[in-house]
């Protein structure tokens, strides 16, 4: 459906810019007056100012992407490299375990990355990695103030990402499959 927006031509008074000036002055004066009294968003929230009191982000805020562990502390990532593939600025670099590499740190998952690096200088916090992840292993979390003294420091490795990411409980797919398989080892097959 087409919606027609009424754009009637400005009348003479409006064309003198005076109403716009008045309105602009009113708004700016209001804010100015409020600020001069020492009131602003920071004081409204009652905390303080930024470096001392970090900004409280809203729920669903898309900050830095970190890897998460499951409730048993195991790495959820299985190195499927879909995030590496989807990442628009190519910030993610995964080194797969390879044939001789270390297996996953939980049974049945078979695989986890040997190294997982996110270059936070490149990352644009778009959230595509989180969206594409089939294992719910990477999440954009609430960190927004990432600093480092050099470029190398801004490349977060697997260990750092997992530490920052914390635990994300959820369905433990591989564990569940393993339990299911164990159940079937006795006959008759248990059906629940």
């Amino acid at each position: 459906m087409t919606k027609v927006v009424d754009r009637s031509p400005l009348n003479f008074y409006e064309r003198t810019y005076l109403p716009a000036l008045m309105e602009g002055f009113k708004i700016t004066a209001r804010h100015f007056a409020r600020s001069v009294q020492g009131k602003n968003t920071a004081t409204d929230l009652g905390d303080g100012y930024y470096p001392e009191v970090p900004w409280r982000v809203a729920e669903g805020y898309r900050g830095a992407p970190y890897l998460v562990s499951d409730q048993d502390g195991a790495t959820k990532c299985v190195s499927c490299q879909l995030c590496e593939f989807i990442c628009p600025p190519k910030a993610i670099k995964i080194t797969p375990p390879g044939p001789e590499g270390q297996g996953a740190d939980r049974p049945n998952a078979e695989k986890m990355p040997r190294e997982f690096e996110i270059n936070m200088l490149r990352c644009i916090f778009c959230g595509l990695c989180q969206e594409v992840c089939p294992e719910e292993a990477i999440f954009l979390q609430q960190h927004y103030s990432l600093t480092g003294l050099n470029r190398e420091e801004m490349i977060y490795n697997k260990e750092k990402l997992l530490k920052l990411g914390g635990v994300h409980p959820g369905i433990q797919k591989w564990k569940h499959k393993l339990e299911e398989a164990r159940d079937q080892e006795s006959f008759p097959v248990k059906v629940d």
Binding site: S79, C80, Q81, E84, F85, P96, P97, G98, P99, G101, E110, K111
Partner: peptide, 12 residues
């Protein structure tokens, strides 16, 4: 293949 096992995703 054991040689190619977990080495690289094929789409790369």
């Amino acid at each position: 293949s054991k040689d190619f096992r977990f080495k690289m995703r094929v789409w790369f």
